[in-house]
Every structure is written in C-alpha cells, then in structure tokens.
C-alpha cells in the first residue's frame, strides 16, 4: 500500500514535472526559432552586444537574505542584497574539509585592516575575477564575435578573455582568467575554461576552488535580448561532484550602452599603500 502510494506520488510528480517542462520549453523554443539574431556568415546565434546579469550572485551563489553592510559606516549603501541560490539544487556540494575552508574564507572576506590581503575576497583587492564570477559581477560585459574569433571584455578592471573557437591547445600556464576553448553545440556556445589559478573566489561569501578547477560554460540565446547562462563547475579537490549555476543574462539595450572605465586598481591604492606614505622632506 505504502509502496503503491509512493509510486502514485512519483507518477504525479513526473507528470507535473513534464507539464512544467513543456510549459517552460515549448514557448521558449518557438520563440527562439523566430527571434534570435544570427550571424550573416555561419548562421549561428549572434552574441555580439553588451550583456549583464541581474542578480545578487556576487554576494553569495547560495540563498542569502538581505543584511546590513559589513562596514557600518557605509550604512545602507553597503547593505547585502537578498537573493535566492543560483546553484542547481540550492547547495554547493563541498567536501567536509573544504566546507570548513569556505567558512574561514567567509570570516576573512572583508579584511579589517589595510593593505594587500591575500586571505580576503580577491574582489576587495581589485584582482581579476576569474570565470564564472566575471559574468555575474554587477557590471556589464561585451561580447565581440566575428568569423572564428571571439573575445569577451568585462567592465570590472577590463578583465578580458580571448576565446579560441574550436581551440584544441591546452593552457600553457595558469592565469587569473584561465584558458578558454569553445565550440558550438547546436545553437549553444560551449566554452571550456581550464588553467585558472587558485586565487579567485566565486563570490563575496567565500565560495572558492582550487587550481584543478574546470568550468564548462553554456551560452544559449532564448530571444533577441536574453541569454541563458549555465556554468558547470568541476573541482575534485574541493567538491564531491560537479555542480551547476544557471542565470539569465540581459542585453543592455540603451542606445548609448558602453563599458565605462572601472579602473579599480586606482580605487585600492589608498587602502593598499596609505599606511606607507612618507611626509615630504623638510
């Protein structure tokens, strides 16, 4: 009886899941066919444009309620914005010892002292953000696409990536933004990112990775002005299994949309070096 009941429930769940999936996918697919822009040269989706995530994943990939600013003097200017998890399934599958490290990162994220602080959130130091964090920093980024060439430039610190279409070469050396090889899977641009160093974090909440990180990004246009962005994160040193984040990216449709200078190197100079200033000689 119980077993029967369980099977019945499963059937309902499956049926409603399928119905939901239909509701979700059918109109989107039809829409996509009609509306996505395509390149003149290979009829692939034309990703050219300025894009931005509109979420609070940079605060924390997982669920996070709103909260006061970690620095009280900044009042509500610095308040933490609430947001739901962008991680499929909600939680990041940390290994137990790695979770402890995440908690430690969280404590150190906002250093209480001036200077280059390598225990703090790298964003605090204006270090290059790595992938996928570059995508959901609260800044726009621009995709440049032409036959067999692809670049992404991010407003934050002018971080940038050359993306090798059908690239086979491996990363010659680790770097902050990694090494990106891309291919088309139907209408989805798939980018494999390897060779990232272990210095970047995923968010301000201390979520992190090792240098064994491999990220597979998928960019799927769902209409003229929206991309579904997925990133699968695999790092056996830190996580028990690969996991995925999903979020929409929005086209910046203002007529004068453009990346503006955010040279944050300049904004941390007082913070880094303020304590070392010498007075002028008498």
């Amino acid at each position: 009886m119980r077993k029967e009941w369980g099977r019945f429930l499963t059937r309902i769940a499956l049926a409603s899941g399928a119905a939901l999936a239909l509701m979700a996918t059918v109109p989107t697919a039809a829409h996509a066919q009609a509306a996505i822009p395509r390149t003149s040269w290979d009829k692939k989706p034309d990703l050219n444009g300025i894009w931005q995530a509109m979420n609070t994943a940079n605060w924390d990939l997982e669920d996070h309620p709103g909260g006061p600013s970690p620095v009280f003097v900044t009042g509500v200017w610095g308040a933490r914005l609430p947001g739901l998890s962008v991680v499929d399934g909600g939680k990041i599958p940390y290994k137990p010892e790695a979770l402890a490290k995440r908690e430690q990162n969280r404590k150190n994220a906002l250093t209480g002292k001036p200077g280059r602080n390598l225990d703090a959130d790298p964003e605090l130091n204006c270090f290059l953000p790595g992938v996928p964090r570059a995508t959901y920093l609260p800044h726009p980024f621009q995709i440049f696409q032409s036959p067999n060439r692809l670049w992404m430039v991010y407003e934050f610190s002018y971080a940038r990536r050359e993306i090798f279409m059908n690239g086979k070469e491996e990363a010659p050396i680790d770097s902050w933004m990694g090494w990106s090889n891309a291919r088309w899977d139907g209408d989805t641009l798939v980018i494999e990112v390897t060779g990232q160093n272990d210095q970047t974090w995923f968010d301000r909440a201390g979520n992190y990775h090792s240098d064994a990180l491999k990220v597979v990004e998928r960019y799927t246009m769902i209409d003229r002005d929206h991309i579904t962005y997925e990133a699968t994160i695999d790092d056996p040193n830190v996580f028990t299994r690969p996991w995925k984040i999903t979020m929409p990216l929005y086209r910046r449709i203002e007529k004068n949309a453009q990346l503006l200078e955010f040279r944050c190197q300049e904004y941390v100079e007082e913070f880094f070096y303020g304590e070392f200033v010498s007075p002028p000689r008498e």
Partner: peptide
C-alpha cells in the same frame, strides 16, 4: 599570442618602494 598581463595582481613594487623609503629614512 596575446597572454594575460595581470599587472596589478603581482604589483609589489609600489608598496615595497614606499616601505623602502621609510626604512631608508
């Protein structure tokens, strides 16, 4: 091939020079 330059990330010059001035004085 254009590679990543990551100038700021490894910039110890500015801080060390300023500390050097303090030490020299």
């Amino acid at each position: 091939q254009i590679y990543e330059y990551a100038c700021h990330e490894g910039n110890n010059t500015v801080g060390n020079s300023m500390r050097g001035t303090i030490a020299a004085r």
